[in-house]
Write a protein that binds this DNA or RNA. Structure first.
Lengths: 210, 210
DNA sequence: AATGAAGTCAAACGGCTGCTTGAGTTCACG
DNA sequence: CGTGAACTCAAGCAGCCGTTTGACTTCATT
């Protein structure tokens, strides 16, 4: 037997798979699913066009796989960031936790940033088969809402849901629009210092005419 | 001479042009510039494929024209909404004026909404030739900033620029993402009542730890 | 050395793309 | 009525698209 020994053939196949996924993620982050070309991916990954059919079945399946990986990485980071919060936290701490995955991705760049941008694009043009991750989405949403309802008991829950979606949308926009490349040049501390007051203010809302 | 009489041929041509522009705007709003098909546009407009080359020169020129029309309509609405504001206005009034074009478009639907969505998409993937409208963009930005600096004299101007971009990005996201179709079902009053506190809060920011 | 599974690759396929062509229609003019 | 400009249209063009094919290499196993 050779369980402890590497099968070089299978390793090469795994490398091709990973390369295709990485190239696809990068291109998805840059331009989205439309206009994405099979040959563009394979050239960027240094692979043959047939490798996509062989390893993933089709271009669409490759994109779906890359998107699902990105969504899973993003949701795990979001849930982890919010999970640390207790119920008695300030709005600023909530805002900081809410923004942490994006701030970290902007500061880190590379694949982390590509994951973020891809997730943001998916938020605008959702694929049909994201039912599998709907539970995680719901969990991340509930985590934020739970802390928010304690911090702002006087605000209607439906409005808090809306504000959470506004905040998430704002982050998605910032990472996707050209302003994202400006932000990516800043340090994580500076991004957080700019962002947290805006997010916290959006959560709190304006005092009604006071 | 026949200056007072209609040339039916030219009228038909104008109708074809307008139909192509309307169909292009609608499809741009739905799916963006990538993946947009010449035959899809012409079928939707009830025109022949050659009409695009004849009237606009190319598919890209047609898209550019449709986008430029949309940008101009949006910027005019934005500048007009902000132009009414005096310097001594409250943050809520500023937020309401800031959101008015989008709220109106969501309530009106149809072409107004398509204009909004197209502008938002252009904000993510900007075409190269929008230099012609850069002046209008700058003017809309300055209008908002002018009122903001008076309303929030204690905040650094660079931060106010950032908050303005955050607010604009949030509106763009709301009109573009699936939540936009939910909002479009609501009345203008309800949308505004939800939106203004969030925008005003984002402008004001959160009190620094206090 | 022989075998067969795993992976790679150039070439080709039908189909769709944007765009052009040339004939045809409509209509205001002289 | 004849002429020419404005416009429409079916058909066709070259080129890129995603996918498939079959020969080929590589390598663990026997």
């Amino acid at each position: 037997m050779a369980t402890g020994k590497a099968d070089l053939r299978r390793e090469a196949g795994q490398r091709t798979r990973d390369g295709l996924l990485a190239a696809t993620l990068e291109l998805l982050a840059q331009r989205g699913q439309e206009g994405l070309t099979l040959r563009e991916i394979t050239e960027s990954a240094g692979a043959n066009v047939a490798a996509v059919s062989y390893h993933f079945g089709s271009l669409k399946a490759l994109c779906d796989t890359a998107i699902e990986h990105a969504l899973e990485r993003y949701l795990d980071a979001q849930i982890e960031a919010l999970g640390f919060l207790s119920s008695g936290v300030t709005l600023e701490e909530l805002a900081a936790a809410f923004a942490r995955p994006m701030v970290g991705a902007l500061a880190a760049g590379g694949q982390d940033l590509a994951v973020m941008r891809t997730v943001a694009r998916v938020g605008i043009d959702p694929p049909q088969g994201w039912d599998r991750l709907a539970g995680k989405f719901e969990r991340a949403r509930q985590d934020a809402l739970r802390v928010l309802t304690v911090a702002l008991p006087e605000v209607d829950e439906q409005e808090l849901v809306f504000r959470t979606r506004c905040a998430a949308g704002m982050l998605n926009w910032l990472v996707l629009a050209p302003i994202g490349v400006e932000l990516a040049a800043e340090s994580a501390e500076r991004i957080e210092r700019l962002l947290v007051p805006v997010l916290a203010g959006a959560f709190r809302g304006a005092p009604s005419r006071g």
